[in-house]
Amino acid sequence: MSAPYLEIKGLKKNYNFKPILRGIDILLDQGKCMALLGANGAGKTTLLRILACLTKPVAGTVRIGGLDIGQDVQQIRLLVGFAGHQPNLYDELTVLENLLFFGRMYAVKNARERADTLLQRVGLARRFSERAGTLSRGQLQRLSLARALLHSPGLLLLDEPDAGLDDEGIAMLEELLREHAAQGGTTLFTTHNFERAETFSDQICMLSGGRVVYQQASSELEAGSVRLAYQEALR
């Protein structure tokens, strides 16, 4: 049996001595998609930021694709694609320039071709020459997704990727996640939408107070059990 692609053990994080993550254990196999649920302040975004090497844990270990997050930071950065809650793009650069810049940062071969393909996929092909600052919230979210996928990452981290997306955008997101999984990519995404969590993912993990309080394969879920677990966790 092969080792999980994402392996988190005893992960802890404090901010100003306040514990945010209190010992997270998560295993996720290659090609699988996990939805991370939890109320505001549960520690979802902090967990994603640690996995993206944007912040360091105070304790615990994380292995991504067999690499240790404490030792192989630069290699892990190459493996990870991250789209945060905010798009955080360069407003003054055009849609295409944004992608080409990050293409150069990740040394993507045939970056122009890859950018064109992704812009087509996220429905922004016709807006390639417009400045990112002129795009709507939903369009920025699409561009942010394209940027996260640009270097074909092994692990895709998405913080509320459905925020600001219309129905067509949600369908596009689902399709992109399925394609990513079909190509062997692993995904961890946060959401507040139970239905989306059940539909998009293979596994559901719920955080509360910095701890994993519920973890279940989507296929084994009983109707309404996620909502029930969520309400239980909030008490």
């Binding site: 944007l54 950065r77 793009l89």
Partner: peptide, 13 residues
Amino acid sequence: EKGSMDRLMLCPV
């Protein structure tokens, strides 16, 4: 302020 510094820090640069 724009959050783009985080994006830059994500890159293997």
